[in-house]
Design a protein around this nucleic acid. Structure first.
Length: 370
DNA sequence: TAACCGTGGCC
DNA sequence: TGGCCAAGGTT
């Protein structure tokens, strides 16, 4: 175990920094639903939702989640369809499956009490270094670092750290810095203050240094280099994936939906039948009909084009060509089951979680048939 | 380590 | 308009 050196930390007036940062937070913090109390379950849910997701996006999801699952036990007992529906549109869907798995583990192994030490809490699915530190410091007052993108940006400027924050090992440098800087009497406020400052003042583009409560402690401001920090290498471009999809109906006015596989992209979500179109120059309708038969065991009549949708993911882009089609013949129950297919009415469909691109397909369909 | 894993807002 | 960004974790 090699000790991490941060030479510039010697230049910081630590007590003054703590005082200015914490008092600013205690006066200026936003009122947010997960700040109403320190219930570890609520803190936990909020931290998972907030991973890579903006506060304004999370707020309505969090409030609805607490209505649906007020306690840890309620969530532990919920069925998978319901928890995915609670997450529909938030993205990174493994978060909610890991959260339920972890909550069930807490109930089974810890008598329903979220563990308050780093070793145990870090074993829970979906709880990494950041989330562990956030729960421990916010809910339990433990002096643990909670290093997210905000904290790395803020402290890279305060301490003039030029390490590339896109590299995983860099997080350890900032954890070491937080361990030196953290106010042991106000762990919750201190950690949240670093993030709040990053969100409101010490922003990526043009930081509002003139409004900053810790400007007098900031080495980057002192040197006028705050806009050069943090150092972050750019990620490479994502690739395009051409997709053909179809909203398929039967004589009863029902829609054919398909459950995605239990691992990987959009795992366990429902979707309209589709496939990767590796032969985009093929003549359309008969070719598509054959592909649907090969993949799903159903033979639709593709009647007309519906809409083109671009679905941007972190690392790839779906270029979706959506069509409308009909299935005239009766499909055997075994075929439906084996291929994870289901006929549902419009009302029933509302119980299932869909990716955003497929929600857009249905929206376009409804507008078209009006 | 680097790739995978969503989505919406912003400039 | 396209790249960047947002309270990351897993493999």
């Amino acid at each position: 175990m090699k000790e991490i050196m941060i030479p510039t930390i010697e230049k910081i007036n630590i007590e003054g920094f703590q005082r200015d940062l914490v008092s600013w937070f205690q006066q200026e913090q936003r009122e947010l639903p997960w700040r109403k109390n320190k219930d570890p379950y609520r803190v936990w849910v909020s931290e998972i939702m907030l991973q890579q997701t903006r506060v304004d996006t999370v707020i309505p999801y969090f409030n609805r989640f607490m209505e649906w699952f007020p306690t840890l036990e309620d969530f532990a007992d919920a069925d998978e369809e319901k928890i995915l529906k609670a997450w529909e549109g938030l993205g990174y869907y493994s978060r909610v499956r890991n959260l339920q798995s972890a909550v069930q583990e807490v109930r089974a192994s810890y008598n329903g009490i979220v563990p308050e030490n780093p070793e145990e809490i870090s074993k829970l699915k979906g709880v990494g270094p950041y989330t562990a530190g956030a729960i421990l410091s916010i809910a339990y007052g433990k002096p643990e670092p909670a290093v997210d993108g905000n904290v790395m940006r803020v402290l890279s400027r305060i301490l003039m750290i030029y390490e590339d924050i896109a590299k995983p090992k860099t997080r350890k440098t900032f954890e070491a810095a937080v361990r030196k800087l953290i106010d042991h009497d106000h762990t919750s406020s201190f950690n949240q203050a670093l993030m709040e400052l990053g969100a409101l003042i010490c922003t990526p583009g043009k930081p509002a240094c003139l409004l900053c409560p810790v400007q007098s402690h900031c080495l980057a401001f002192e040197s006028g280099v705050q806009s050069e920090l943090p150092v972050k290498i750019q990620k490479k471009k994502s690739r395009d994936v051409p997709i053909v999809a179809a909203i398929l109906t039967n004589a009863n006015g029902e829609f054919l939906i398909h459950k995605r596989q239990s691992a990987g992209l959009l795992a366990n979500l429902w979707e309209y039948p589709n496939f990767e179109n590796h032969a985009p120059l093929q003549p359309k309708r008969e070719f598509y009909k054959d592909r649907f038969q090969e993949i799903y065991g159903v033979t639709p009549e593709i009647t007309e084009p519906l809409v083109r949708i671009e679905h941007v993911f972190s690392h790839l882009v779906w270029k979706v060509d959506a069509y409308i089609g009909e299935i005239k013949e009766m499909i055997d129950e075994n075929i439906l089951r084996e291929n994870q297919l289901k006929w549902v009415s419009e009302a029933e469909m509302a119980e299932f979680a869909f990716p955003v691109s497929h929600q857009k397909m249905m929206k376009a369909y409804k507008e078209k048939i009006e």
